[in-house]
Design a protein around this nucleic acid. Structure first.
Lengths: 161, 161
DNA sequence: TTGAATGCAAAGTGTTTGCACGTGC
DNA sequence: GCACGTGCAAACACTTTGCATTCAA
């Protein structure tokens, strides 16, 4: 399975370099939500001369081009979602930080009643479901978690009183 | 209008100090979404000896106590929402960063279909509506914006293709 | 050839920590 | 009195920037 991202970029005529190709390949696939630093570390493994600045520059440009989505996880670092062409939402594990894409059917048109818009021009909506992933529910701790230790304790908001 | 937060803390028997009182007073009210640093700056104006560490410590403890909600805005810094006892969602201006609470009626029970839960135990949901605030829509720029300059360009996700 | 991309290192933000001192209960 | 809160400064984690060099088109 080769990166669709890479193909799209090529089609757009985006100037390609070895560094950009490596980054695009790392970002291939679904449920990929890496931080800039994780992307940097993987990129170095394939292309030792690559620098952090290039990774950050590239991620910023890809985000501006609309090829990547920035997801603010519970950690300090943003994560990057290559699945930008397909509208979806996220499900995060509050213990180990595992992030998954979700496509809730039926509420694709979730919108804010005009009486609640406070005069805003509303153009989008992001939904983050919170909970515990299967590994963390079963107490087995972070079995396959992206980060070894991550005892989160962030804001929680229930949908009913 | 005096801080409900302060009263709640007193009732809980939370050890009160001059620093904590100042912070609680700064966090009084609705649609208050300040960053730690903004809270620090306001606190210094009232109590010059207060330190950043105390502000961060206090905010962390209030969050753990469930009195504050951390909201990850588009800026790097988290914002703190004192309206934790009342479930609600947020509306953010992508240009100036203005953040408002919203209480969408009718979707209070928004939940993830079990087929989409990927084995997670889902305990909460956060919704962030994105758009432009009245000032930014009308081109008048950041008329009463919390931050003088803030040309955001973050992830956008439309609810329909 | 040439404007854009890169590497490097330094500077910025935002947040946390270690430790000595001070204070509410 | 003593556990806990505080101030200070240094450490940290993440990201951005300035500038000389290199490279894709």
């Amino acid at each position: 399975m080769v990166s669709r991202l890479l193909e799209r970029l090529r089609k757009r005529g985006w100037p390609m370099t070895a560094q950009r190709r490596v980054i695009a390949e790392i970002l291939a696939g679904e449920h990929v939500h890496l931080s800039a630093d994780e992307i940097f570390r993987r990129a170095v493994a394939r292309l030792p001369e690559i620098s952090r600045a290039t990774v950050y520059n590239t991620l910023k440009k890809l985000t501006e081009l609309g090829e990547l989505l920035e997801v603010s996880s519970d950690e300090r670092a943003k994560r990057y979602d290559p699945n930008a062409s397909d509208p979806h939402h996220h499900l995060i594990c509050e213990r180990c930080g595992l992030l998954r894409d979700v496509h809730p059917k039926g509420q694709g048109h979730l919108s804010l009643p005009s009486g609640e818009r406070h005069g805003f021009d509303v153009t989008g909506v992001e939904i983050m479901f919170r909970g515990l992933c299967p590994s963390c529910v079963s107490g087995r701790g972070s079995a396959a978690s992206p980060r070894p230790s991550a005892p989160r304790s962030s804001a929680r908001l229930r949908s009913r009183k």
